[in-house]
Structures are given as structure tokens and as C-alpha cells.
Amino acid sequence: MKILLTGASGLLGASFAAAAQRRGHHVVGIVGAYSGKIPGVALTKTLDLTQLDQLEAFALELFPDAIVNCAAISEPKDCEADPQGSRLLNVALPEKLALLSRHLFATLIHISSEQVFDGTQELYFRDSPTSPTNEYARQKRESEEAVHSICAEFATTLRLPLLMGNSLGRDRSMHERLFAAWSQGQQTPLFTDEIRQPCHVENIASVMVELCERSDLKGVYHWAGEKSLSRFEMGQRIVRHFGLPEDLIIAAQRGDDPRFAHRQARLVFDLTPLASKLKTQPPCFSDQLDTLIVPRNAQAWYHSI
């Protein structure tokens, strides 16, 4: 299968490329400023994804069997700072990919987020009403609506949780950002009242490859890890896994700082509709920890502890 992958150098995109290659697929990855090698990508194309006419021309020439969209501006603060700019990647791009999917009769895998929910429910089902609380979440909801209104018969949207893993730049995932702070001598406050369901990108990538290979799983689905934990619990588990001092993290609550009081309290998914149909299963947190490595930029500090 020939797969067009946007966001190929990102945390999730790079993991998907490697997983797809292992399954024998030919991945053509689109990147922006990244110039390094991406394992699993057979051909790399440098392209500004806001230039939708150029993207369309390239996709029509390539004529892929599947399109996988991992490109996004995923930091809520960046979306709040530049709503119009972030909409180009978060809304206009998936809308264009949906049109291309319909034209090419190509499977489309679109990545969305747990953020489309407000965090007030114990458990979120795939048909639970969305209620975004920030600009990033509003854009993600709009992108879902656009994708499925344009090419419902070809599209699968996968809503994802907090991502774990090792990025190419070693600065994208939770543990990498924690190591960056710790290596600069910063203790890290983590919320005890913010519950998430983290999942390793390698596990998610396997799910995405299965979805590319299946024609019967269209629509919106949820995927996440097996267990929900508070951010503080995650930090504790990471610190212990790497044998680090536990005072590197500090227990905090969202209301302690007005900047974070609006953050969703609990984002936990019902995984049954998809997990019951796939070979890949949600991973436990200890297995996710076993794959993590110390980022290069923090190794000197780590070995000095």
C-alpha cells in the first residue's frame, strides 16, 4: 500500500512510518523544516502544508492508497496566540485531505484529540457530545466535522490522549519535557487532579496501520492506554523508572495557578468499540515506561545524578 503521511517527522508520524514499513507499506512522508532521516519513510517531500494547491498537486501525482494526517499545531497556547494561523493546519489541511481522499478513493486516517471533551464526565464514549474548552479543541472538533461531512465513506478519525514515546528531536513527549526541565535544575509541579489515559505512540502507530488495512472501521473512534492516572502519578512512575530523586516533581492542583484552572479534570475514553475489533490492544503503563530512553540533551545530567 502506498501511504501519504503528513507530519512525518513528529512524535506520532515517525512512529507510524516505522510501523507501516514493518508491514511492508510504502510511506511517502511530508515534512516542513525537518531535514534528518525518518526511519520507515521511503520518500521524503519537503512541503509547506499551508500551501494547499502544492499539496493537492503532489497528492494527485502520487495517487496514494491511503492518507494519514499527523500534522497539527497541538499546543493549545499556540492556537490561542494565533487562531487564524493554527487553523490552516488544524482545519484547512484536513478539509483539503478529505477532498483528496474522496477524489482518489483513498482511505483517510485523521488524528484528533481527547481535548474535544470538557473533562466533566467519568468516561467518554465515541458518541458523547463534544464540548471543547479551548481554541485547539474547537479547531479539532471542526476538523472532525469537515472530514466526515466530505468523505465519510473513506475516513476514520482517531481521538488520542496524552502521548508517550521517544521523538526524533527528543523534545516532544511528556518524559522528554520533564527531563529538559530537570536537567536545567527545575523542579516540576504536576497536577494530582488532572486525570489522563496516556498511550505510547508505537502502540497507536500499530492501531493506525491496522486502520489503513481495514475497510470496515470508518467513523470516529477513541484510543488510549489501558489505565488512567493523574499527571502527578505519571511523574512519580517516570522518576522511579529512571531511578531519579522523587523530589524532582511536586504535587500541585489545577486551581493553584489561575493559568491552569481551566484545564480539563478527567479525560478517559471508552475503548471497547475499537479494541474489540483490533489485534493491537491498549498498553499498560509499565510497558510504556520500558520503551522510554533518556533524551540526548539530558544524558550528561542524568549520568551525573
Rank of each mutant, 00 (worst) to 15 (best):
R172D: 10
R172L: 07
R172Y: 03
R177I: 00
R177K: 15
R177C: 05
F179R: 06
A181Q: 14
W182M: 05
Q184N: 09
G185D: 07
G185I: 11
Q186I: 00
T188Y: 08
T188G: 08
P189T: 07
F191K: 07
F191M: 08
E194D: 10
E194R: 12
R196Q: 14
R196C: 13
C199I: 13
C199Y: 08
H200A: 12
H200M: 11
E202P: 11
I204S: 01
I204K: 01
A205L: 01
S206R: 00
V207A: 06
V207F: 13
M208N: 13
V209Q: 04
E210G: 05
L211G: 13
L211Y: 03
C212V: 14
E213S: 13
E213W: 00
E213V: 10
R214S: 14
R214T: 11
D216T: 08
D216N: 07
Y221H: 02
Y221Q: 03
Y221T: 04
Y221K: 08
W223I: 10
W223Y: 15
A224W: 07
G225L: 03
G225E: 07
G225M: 06
G225W: 00
E226I: 04
K227W: 07
S228W: 02
S228D: 14
S228E: 12
L229M: 10
R231A: 06
R231L: 11
F232H: 14
F232C: 04
E233P: 09
E233D: 15
M234C: 15
G235I: 05
G235T: 08
G235P: 02
Q236W: 09
R237N: 12
R237M: 13
R237L: 11
R237C: 00
I238P: 03
V239R: 12
V239C: 13
R240T: 15
H241R: 05
H241V: 04
F242T: 09
G243Q: 06
G243K: 07
G243W: 10
G243C: 00
G243Y: 00
G243V: 13
G243F: 13
L244V: 06
P245N: 05
P245D: 03
P245C: 12
D247M: 10
L248I: 06
L248Y: 10
I249S: 03
I249A: 02
I249F: 08
I249R: 00
A251Y: 02
A251S: 13
A251C: 03
A251T: 06
A252L: 01
A252R: 11
Q253G: 04
Q253R: 14
R254Y: 12
G255F: 04
P258Y: 11
R259K: 11
F260H: 13
F260E: 01
F260R: 00
A261H: 12
A261G: 01
H262P: 01
R263H: 11
R263A: 08
Q264S: 15
Q264C: 05
Q264I: 06
R266E: 01
R266Q: 15
V268Y: 08
F269M: 11
F269P: 10
D270E: 02
L271Q: 03
L271C: 07
T272L: 05
T272Y: 06
P273C: 09
L274T: 03
A275I: 07
S276A: 15
S276R: 05
L278M: 04
L278Q: 12
T280P: 03
T280M: 09
T280L: 12
P282R: 10
P282F: 01
P282I: 11
F285N: 08
F285C: 02
